[in-house]
Amino acid sequence: MKRRYLHSMLAAVAVTVLASQSWAATTLTVYTAIEADDLKRYAAEFNKYYPDIEIKWVRDSTGIVTAKLLAEKNNPQADVVWGLAATSLMLLKAEGMTQAYKPKGVEQLDKKFVDGEDPPHWTGMDAWVAAICVNTVEAKKLNLPMPTSWKDLTKPVYKGHVVMPNPNSSGTGFLDVSSWLQMFGEEGGWQFMDSLHQNIAWYTHSGSKPCRQAGSGETPIGVSFAYRGAKVKNKGAPVEIVMPAEGAGWDMEATTIIKGTKNLEAAKKLVDFSVSKEANQMYNSVYAVVAYPGVAQPVKNYPENIGAKMMNNDFQFAADNRKRILKEWQRRYDSKSEPKS
């Protein structure tokens, strides 16, 4: 009697185990820099289509995730990277860490958002665009006119009122610097930064901080990106997001499979999903520009017509010259210690 009871118990356990296994056959370790409050939504959406793949998120800021991936180069822990700056993925590609894969439906995407190689190593999701956050309350107190272009920021009236990210510690900072060098030319770019430097109150370590600081009035003007500006504005900060007239640098969040993953099939499914229309609609809830043409709806508090302001960014140029640019930048601006107010 007792024994039989035991048997049936065991059988029940076995069934449960098997069942749960078939429910989540695979667990994917996914590295990402997507905002924490978006992560759960993304995973839930993905599981609607692929319920048997469980996502284990590893989230951190762009710099840290990139550093982590590179540090783990010899022994990668990630299966997929979903939602990291394309420039970072290019870095990984250069290190030979990415797996080439042509996702189903990738041909639907805007060419700008897909790695040029065939099959591509990475595919873009959405764009985050550089922008200027202006705190209208503080600007008014200080009688600052609303800037409309990058060049405006070099005017003496803004002296000590501009905050931007340090390109040596922030990807957004580098994005800004590389875009200025592309738009204004090598010489013009450095000249622009020379005069901008005169107006900078301080450089921050993170790309979103200037806009947050503009939101809290720590600075009237912060050079950051539009997505962050919208989020700060949503919180009720008196912030206006300015898209500079010259155009703005941008980068995209992108997806790649890490070479050597033990879960290649599941990884491919995730990447397939990441380029789908449904996924792009999902990205659109927070990003105004997404890779899938025609799905984007206006996002609350985003500057209008942001797509038109996106400059023609040469990512290859940025990747190839990164070291040189950073060194030059450091030589020019990082060695001046005294903060100007």
Partner: peptide
Amino acid sequence: PKVIGGNYNVLATDIYKQVIGQQNF
């Protein structure tokens, strides 16, 4: 220094910049 240092560089934040900002281990 990370929180309140502004652009006043010190060695400890330099390490952070090298490793996290530039992935230059």
